[in-house]
Amino acid sequence: MQAYKLTLKLLFTVMLLVVTSSTVIAEEMDGKKVAFDRKKGNCLACHVMDNGDMAGNIGPPLIVMKARFPDRAALKAQIWDATVKNKISIMPPFGKHKILTDNEIEKLIDYLYTL
């Protein structure tokens, strides 16, 4: 009986783990979709990233993001409106011009931190 309960508990935990990790994966996928989709971020138009196809070379490669952008707010600011930092930046103001929703940007940033 005791053993049975334990197994159940274990099973439950395993299931929970599976569920949570797959949502993490799903979220990462969402973030990647936001980045790659031409109608969404289309980051590949300008940035080499994550072995994406036919990437442009207008902006710097998006690599080792965690080390380079320890401050999430700074990364978000760049995506929200790049023209604050560089007045003539060609990078579209994804937040300010509502090209992406806040939620999409958060997912995108989660994904960027895996790079």
Partner: peptide, 10 residues
Amino acid sequence: QNVGRKARSE
């Protein structure tokens, strides 16, 4: 500003 660079494959 970005003449000669590539926007995707263009």
